[in-house]
Amino acid sequence: MSEKKQIKQKSAFREWIDSVVFAVVAATLIRFFFFEAYTIPTPSMESSLMVGDFLFVSKLHYGVRTPKTPLQVPLTHQKIWGTDIPSYLRWLDLPIKRLPGFSDVKQGDAVVFNVPNYSPDGDAPVDLRTYYIKRCIGTPGKTLEIRDTQVYIDGKPMENPPKLQHEYILKVKEQLTEEFFEEHNIYNGIDATGQSNANWMEVNLTAQDSLIGGLHDYIVNTYQGNIDEFKKMKSFVSVDLLKAAKNTPDGQDGMTNDDGATPMFGSSYIWNRDNYGPLLIPSKGLTIKLDSGNVDKYKYIIKYYEDNKNVVIDGHRIMIDGKTITSYTFKQDYYFMMGDNRHHSADSRYWGFVPSDHIVGKAVFIWMSLDPNKNFLSKIRWNRIFRFVN
């Protein structure tokens, strides 16, 4: 008489554990190979992308990037949730490679990347540094210049994003309400974390009563479509673009970015946020001569991003292993990134080029948008849900 083996039934707890493990593994694989969720925390891309937008970022477009730090708690970034404990170990430090993708990074793409070394978490591994999202303005091998707020690539004006923002002084004959500004997507200084940003608040929603004629002056950060609407108002008087003068360092005429920083190369070339360059963007295999006229443009690339050892910067000299170099061949591509909110964006103008191994993916889809300025019942921006990113 043969005995039939009894198949042991899994307990409810074991089935729950298996389900959780499967979900974590599946989510980790999807996040690594396909898409990752991202939230817009700052106004640097307004009005194209708003604070409180939730995005899907495609890893497939530019190719999946292999991890530099594989020993990491799944579904974390730098810290274990709710703690200050690092979520990774540095026991394995691998070279970053990239699998084939659908396309290269193109001019005009909204790109998510790990912010370069200047940031407070600059000591973190490249793949675990803070995420930023900006628009790619300059691609490898191109020459970028900003003249009077307009970007030029290889001497030709770049087509601006439809909702490119600048600062303006709006002068009207009536006092405008906060609801008026909300209708035009101009908000006071509340970011996605609920924290007030005093600088942004002063810029976007400040009324200055004029002593002459009872006029009202508003400093607004907005795009051309809104400016055209303002000009149709019965109370409209004038609107003027606030811009930095050429050959004037940021700050001398009151024009700075939010944290008062000066442009990356401004101390050497007297560039500012609205007048910048010309600047050649490095590409892999490109060889340049190094002299007093351009060392400041490329010294940090050579020291921090090219995996060179024993680099010493001494004024206008760069030494590798004790030898002064007079030319250099770049080992990877670089990009120039800028926010669409041009007067309120910390970007490549302030911290330099973005190396190709810092690129995470392309922002493709807004799946949810929550207005941090509204209460619970009216928080969802229904008109922004399920929209592709332009």
Rank of each mutant, 00 (worst) to 15 (best):
K234V: 00
I186L: 01
D191I: 09
M255I: 15
V203Q: 12
G225Q: 00
G254M: 07
D258T: 00
M255H: 13
T206S: 10
N204M: 09
M201V: 11
M255T: 13
L242A: 14
T256D: 09
P249H: 02
V203R: 14
I169R: 07
Q252L: 13
G260A: 06
V172N: 03
D191P: 06
T206M: 12
Q165R: 13
G189N: 08
L205P: 02
N247D: 14
N257G: 05
G189I: 10
T222Q: 02
K243T: 15
Y187K: 09
S196T: 08
H166S: 08
K243H: 11
E179H: 04
Q224S: 04
N247M: 06
Y168A: 01
V239M: 09
Q165C: 12
K246W: 14
D228T: 09
Y187N: 08
A207R: 13
Q224D: 11
Q252I: 10
N221W: 00
F230H: 03
N247A: 09
K234M: 08
F236L: 07
F180N: 07
N247C: 04
M233C: 04
L215F: 11
V203K: 08
P249T: 07
M233N: 03
L164D: 04
L211C: 11
F181T: 04
F181L: 08
E167R: 13
D250C: 01
F236N: 02
N185L: 12
T262L: 08
T248C: 05
L241G: 06
S238R: 14
T262I: 14
L242W: 12
M233A: 06
G189C: 05
K171M: 00
E202F: 09
P263E: 10
T262K: 12
H166M: 05
E182M: 07
K231V: 03
N204T: 15
G214W: 14
N257W: 06
F181S: 01
P263S: 10
W200A: 07
E202M: 15
V203Y: 03
T262D: 08
E174K: 13
H184T: 01
F180H: 07
I190E: 11
A245S: 15
Q175G: 11
L164P: 03
S196H: 10
M233Q: 04
Q165F: 02
I212H: 14
G260D: 02
D209R: 13
